[in-house]
């Protein structure tokens, strides 16, 4: 497992370069005081997952073999539903709430994972401290294994 990207100033600069590359290539610059037209307001309310009719590249039709983490993510989402913490429609809404950059910039199951994580934090089922401690525990375990 790679060391954390913020561990030195040069890797931090590289991280920021990567973060900047997530931003849309073209975007309208909003003036201050912030005013927007009705048309733009409606465009901003357009729901991110409603992509029908938008131009896109060719569709990759090769069969995807799910990775272990993808299966685990799916199982986790189902178990959270089984225990009454959400339903799939709430998961989809929470994926939209990630915003366009994360929605279009993360793999399919990473969206599930981010939505599940925020749901658990929103509902107080885990605390940020618990989550960070677990992430550190897994990072350390993976580094030993590598």
């Amino acid at each position: 497992m790679a060391t954390r990207a913020t561990s030195s100033s040069s890797t931090y600069a590289a991280l920021m370069e990567c973060v900047r590359s997530h931003a849309p290539a073209s975007h309208a610059v909003a003036n201050l005081p912030l005013t927007i037209s009705q048309t733009r307001a409606e465009a901003l309310l357009h729901v991110v997952h409603d992509v029908g009719g938008q131009p896109d590249g060719p569709i990759d039709k090769t069969l995807h073999k799910p990775a272990h983490w993808e299966k685990s993510t799916h199982c986790t989402a189902e178990c959270l539903a089984w225990r009454g913490h959400w339903v799939s429609e709430e998961r989809r809404r929470r994926e939209n709430d990630l915003g366009e950059t994360l929605y279009f910039g993360t793999p399919y199951y990473a969206r599930w994972l981010l939505a599940a994580t925020k749901m658990l934090l929103d509902k107080g089922l885990v605390t940020p401290d618990e989550l960070l401690a677990k992430m550190e525990e897994i990072r350390a375990r993976e580094e030993i294994a590598a």
Partner: peptide, 12 residues
């Protein structure tokens, strides 16, 4: 109807 953050009714 305007979509508010989530919809299952496609814009088109």
């Amino acid at each position: 109807i305007p979509p508010l953050f989530h919809t299952r009714t496609q814009g088109y």
